[in-house]
Nucleic acid binder design. Structure first.
Length: 850
DNA sequence: TACCCCTGCGCG
DNA sequence: AAAGCGCGCAGGGGTA
């Protein structure tokens, strides 16, 4: 029997020629490097209550502990005891992963603590395990990274802290509850003018401990998956038994179709279905206790062509008819492949669920959403370590292994879904999950439809930018400072920050700059600076916006001639969707020259490009959240708030726009409005200080300060709302969108204010996108499926034949949002043209017109 | 060669 | 030390 199934490090990371982990466990102190360490108190014994509810597990004794021969008597030990109420304190038990002080042996550092090594931990493990087995605590509280790794193999305490993980320590099953180590944040405590400033970590630690005490009596019995039973109920067919296997597939699919909840998982040979030779290798369906996997197009699948066709039909039938909830982990993936091979409509047939979306709604910390990690958090074992298989190359792994792997995934998806569903219900987050789980269908279809690129335009732009770059390089080569640089060092690369830094300091004699950003260096009056800035701009424009989507080697163009950017609904912590490969959300727009790259985004013949932007959506959401009377009135009267303040600031400080007479200049004011929107109104609404705003706008504080005061006089309801949000965060440790989506701490002040706004705006826009997409799957009108999603902008390809009807339908759908918290008009700006660059406005449209 | 982090910068 | 928020991508430069 393994001593502890999730024990520290494996043999795979063991340096060669060192004893195995089993040997270390057998030899204990005899093998330990610390056995003969020169310390005051070797092998300190655990102490405290005999049968505690809470067992505190630290890294190893520090200097204070070593001196006194007792754990947790140093600074952080005292702090830790202090964080528990007196009655509870008596009932704690204390131990460390390593019981002898691991002190630094480096010269001059003999009194410094260090983290215990793997060998020290493993030698000590048996004695710690024995003590925990004897003490039988309900919860082991792990302080910092070492106990986290010790108990779960988890790696980042910031991602694991505050979660209850079921673990089996020796023979004892209990909860492991990682928290920040006090020693860490006590070191980082700062004093400003005699007042201690607490770090985020410290506040989070306090909250985590408080939560532990609040919930400990209500914790369910922890359950750790029995590794001997993970394959229970798993069945597969290889397809080699012809019609017998076929019948089995049929029977099984009929069986699972009648279950209430079924995990569903594809294994594929690529991540996306658009590559040449992309195929689904196998499929698995499962309940909590039974799983069935069968091959599609794995090379070893035994199907004849005829049987393969039958398989296709059987699966299609399942997708069309199954009454069960179909659960995937990362649903956009399953839906994208389903749409691609079986038809778009199926993404909305029956009910699909997503364990990743559930996990995201429960805890939006990134990096902890894989099925593997979630199985560890919920079931106490690492799912992926069960299957000895190269997951990046399933096509060349033996079919039987692929099927077992596939089946396990689907089984634990189902199991995970059922557990997370209960937790969502307990935390009153089912509604937020419903919003989240509507996203994958539209995401999958937008991804599948793809984005057209005008390759002639791409080539033209590529050549033009190439020429500009050569020109800049030639101009650079003419400069004395560049000669000097190259004599002294090496060829000058304007795209290299270290080179630019060297140019500034060694050649131009400018030393005190923090970085080489455009903003920082543009004040320097030297031709080389302008050339550097230009070079960076043009080379970025070319590589990011042109080369990457070229049919001539662009890495994002697929064999079908389209882009298929991915949208990630479970990535951005506020609840926005991010985009990648390429990021459709960062093609240039603000720079009049740069925005020409958008001309590459055209439509198929017979279609026009239709672009719809929500008008000041986040400002409207601030009105919805704060219910500020003035703001809501202004929004109801369709007043352009940015314009209002643009004029106000222009009058207050005309120098900023080049004098009073410029107030009448439409172009100047339009440009200034842009600055006011992004450097005044938004920053203030999201918590920027007057001083920061002064900096952004480059207007002295004595001029802008009074305007900021007026701003807050006018929108005092918004200020009050901001205060309320901060209070709520203080109380609950999270903030909430109007849609119920949460964002948990640690959050700095301004994020607290921003998150509910950004998240709610995202929910409104994505909901509209989804309703339009549903209209497509309901009626077959494919132009209602958005092609691009850019936060507050949706883009469509509309057939010329039905242009007017489609325009009206889409606009109406976008402005008539069904959320009950909407108390101000929702408005859009719409424009139309041959491509994403040559767009002509067709006007603004308001919900109260419909 | 692949991978990592850093810097810089585009979008909302 | 204080800081509007949210993202992804390219190139440089180092490492294995």
């Amino acid at each position: 029997m393994t001593l502890f199934f999730a024990s520290g490090l494996d043999d795979e990371v063991r340096p060669k020629g060192r004893p195995s982990v089993e040997t270390l466990h057998k030899m204990e102190c005899k093998a330990c490097p610390l056995d003969k360490a020169d310390v005051n108190s070797p092998k300190i014994e655990p102490h405290g209550a005999k049968n505690p509810d809470i067992y505190i597990l630290g890294e190893g004794p520090g200097e204070g502990e070593d001196k006194k021969g007792e754990f947790f008597v140093g600074r952080s030990g005292k702090f830790l005891r202090g964080s528990f109420p007196k009655e509870i304190r008596k009932k704690l038990r204390y131990n460390n992963c390593v019981r002898t002080r691991p002190a630094s042996t480096k010269l001059g550092e003999t009194n410094k603590n260090r983290a215990p090594t793997y060998f020290e931990q493993e030698c000590c493990r048996p004695s710690v395990v024995r003590d925990i087995e004897k003490a039988k605590p309900k919860v082991v509280v792990g302080l910092g990274n070492v106990p986290l790794q010790w108990a779960t193999k988890g790696e980042k305490i910031s991602l694991w802290r505050g979660r209850f993980v079921p673990v089996k320590i020796g023979s004892h099953v209990c909860w492991f509850y990682p928290v920040y180590h006090p020693a860490g944040f006590l070191r980082r405590r700062k004093e400003i003018r005699g007042r201690v400033v607490f770090s985020d970590e410290e506040q989070i630690y306090e909250r985590d401990i408080a939560w532990l005490l609040e919930i400990i009596d209500d914790l369910p019995t922890p359950e750790v998956e029995d590794l001997d039973r993970v394959y229970d109920g798993v069945e597969t067919v290889l397809g080699t038994n012809g019609s017998k296997d076929l019948r089995k597939v049929k029977k099984q699919l009929e069986y699972f179709a009648k279950k209430p909840i079924v995990g569903l998982d594809y294994e594929t040979n690529m991540l996306r279905p658009y590559g040449t030779g992309a195929k689904v290798l196998s499929v698995a369906v499962a309940t909590e206790i039974e799983a069935f996997a069968f091959p599609f197009d794995h090379p070893q699948a035994g199907w004849t062509d005829e049987e393969r066709k039958e398989i296709y039909q059987l699966w299609l039938r399942f997708l069309k008819k199954a009454k069960c909830r179909k659960v995937a982990h990362s649903l956009p993936f399953e839906l994208e492949w389903t749409a691609y091979f079986y038809g778009d409509k199926l993404v909305r047939v029956g009910r699909w669920d997503c364990t990743l979306a559930q996990a995201f709604i429960l805890d939006e910390r990134r990096g902890m959403l894989s099925l593997d990690t979630l199985c560890m958090i919920r079931f106490g074992f690492w799912l992926k370590s069960i299957s000895p298989i190269d997951r990046s190359n399933l096509e060349n792994e033996p079919l039987d292994a692929v099927l077992l792997y596939n089946a396990l995934d689907s089984k634990y998806e189902c199991k995970l879904f059922i557990l997370q569903d209960k937790i969502l219900e307990n935390e009153e987050l089912l509604e937020a999950y419903e919003d989240q789980v509507r996203r994958p269908a539209t995401v999958a279809l937008t991804q599948k439809f793809g984005v057209c690129i005008d390759q002639d335009e791409n080539r033209r732009l590529g050549k033009q930018l190439e020429k500009q770059l050569r020109g800049i390089e030639a101009d650079l080569a003419d400069l004395d400072v560049v000669h000097e640089f190259e004599d002294k060092f090496h060829p000058f690369n304007a795209g290299s920050p270290p080179d630019v830094d060297k140019m500034l300091s060694s050649i131009l004699g400018i030393h005190d700059l923090e970085d080489t950003k455009e903003e920082t260096i543009q004040e320097i009056d030297h031709p080389v600076i302008q050339l550097i800035v230009q070079f960076r701009k043009i080379s970025r424009r070319k590589s990011t916006n042109v080369d990457s989507i070229s049919e001539d080697g662009g890495k994002y163009l697929w064999p079908d001639g389209l882009l298929h950017p991915t949208l990630n609904p479970n990535g951005a912590r506020t609840g926005r969707m991010s985009s990648n490969s390429p990021n459709e959300q960062n093609f240039e727009k603000r720079d009049p020259e740069g925005r020409k790259v958008r001309s590459q985004f055209n439509t198929p013949k017979g279609f026009v490009f239709f672009s719809v932007d929500y008008k000041q959506l986040e400002t409207s959401v601030i009105g919805m959240a704060s219910k500020d009377k003035i703001l809501c009135d202004l929004l109801n009267q369709r007043v352009d708030i940015h314009q209002l303040w643009t004029e106000r600031v222009a009058h207050e400080y005309p120098r900023r726009i080049g004098g009073k007479r410029m107030i009448k200049d439409k172009e100047v004011m339009a440009e200034f409005r842009y600055d006011i929107k992004n450097q005044f109104v938004f920053p203030l609404f999201f918590g920027a200080s007057p001083h920061s705003v002064s900096g952004y706008l480059n207007i002295p504080i004595q001029n802008i300060g009074p305007v900021v005061d007026d701003f807050w006089d006018m929108f005092s309801g918004v200020k009050d709302w901001q205060e309320r949000e901060l209070d709520k965060y203080e109380e609950y440790g999270y903030v909430e969108c109007l849609t119920g989506r949460r964002r948990r701490g640690p959050l700095a002040g301004n994020k607290i204010i921003n998150s509910p706004i950004q998240g709610t705006a995202a929910d409104i826009a994505i909901d509209a996108m989804n309703r339009l997409s549903k209209h497509y799957t309901d009626t077959g009108i494919s132009q209602y499926q958005a092609r691009l999603y850019i936060h507050d902008e949706l883009d469509f390809y509309l057939p010329e034949s039905s242009l007017e009807d489609d325009v009206e339908f889409i606009i109406k759908e976008m402005v008539t949002s069904p959320y009950s918290f909407i108390n101000v008009p929702v408005a859009v700006d719409a424009s139309i043209g041959p491509n994403w660059y040559e767009l002509e406005s067709i006007g603004s449209f308001y919900s109260d017109d419909f």
